[in-house]
Amino acid sequence: MLEIKNIVKKYSNHRALDNVSITVPKGSIFGLLGPNGAGKTTLIRIINQISAPDSGEIFFDGEKLQPKHIERIGYLPEERGLYKKMKIGEQMLYLAQLKGLKKKDASHRIKHWFEKLEIQSWWDKRVEDLSKGMQQKVQFVATIVHEPDLIILDEPFSGFDPVNAQIIQNEIIELNRKGATVIYSTHRMESIEALCDDIALINRSEKILEGSVKDIKQSYRNQTFKISYSSMEGARGEIDEIPFIDIIRHTTAQDTKEAVVKIHDDKTLNDILLLLIPKVTIHQIIEIIPSMHDIFIEKVTLSKN
């Protein structure tokens, strides 16, 4: 859907983006991650053609990015804003028409979305009379009303209560299912695993990680397991007697014990099981795969040093 090639953006005293290349697959929900000030917003603005890169190219659906593509993109900026004194309905119509919709179509679709989100009664209200969360909802409609092929959401859940965040998340997933590609920019990791197929991690103006969530997590597996067990009758039955493992955490609760262990790189789980089986009763073994959160923190701290 979107191919970003070697983008460089310089401001007078620093580089906001340094040779960043990212590929956003069609039909995916793509997480654009990175700490504050990493360059996410700069990149998003370049995709939206709000600012131009110093060098590099972007291809939209195979074509070089051009002004005509603007109508196929829906953008929810991190810093939200609407005209405070304007009535909601009028404002929605205006924004939709600016995205190239005809007035009649725009009106029809806005009403459809207002019904769907149960906010029809807001049509004649002014923005300044709405709460922040309500404004966010209106703004979300403005972002997607022209049925864009590419939806770019910059921190879409900030300002929402959990109930409304869930509603919006469901809408995003539904839009994606209907064919829209979604770029989801955030520095909060909680929703990434539930929502995203692919991610790119930007830190200090550079891309430091890119790929599908599944692959990334696979590559970060490091033979760490949680083993629940209890001592066997007649045996001493302690896990710390076993070689080839490092015990990260060990807890005892009544009759079951739990240990988080990292198996040495030259051994497999099978090797360890062979050693364990004669000594303890195994109840459960779960592989511990690092969360995106852990990976994020690890990568960002690593690149700092």
Partner: peptide, 18 residues
């Protein structure tokens, strides 16, 4: 100034040229 401080400007210029 109103468009700038209310941040609506970013939405508008994602649809039209500044």
């Amino acid at each position: 100034i109103e468009e700038k401080t209310s941040r609506v400007v970013e939405i508008i210029i994602s649809s039209v040229k500044p």
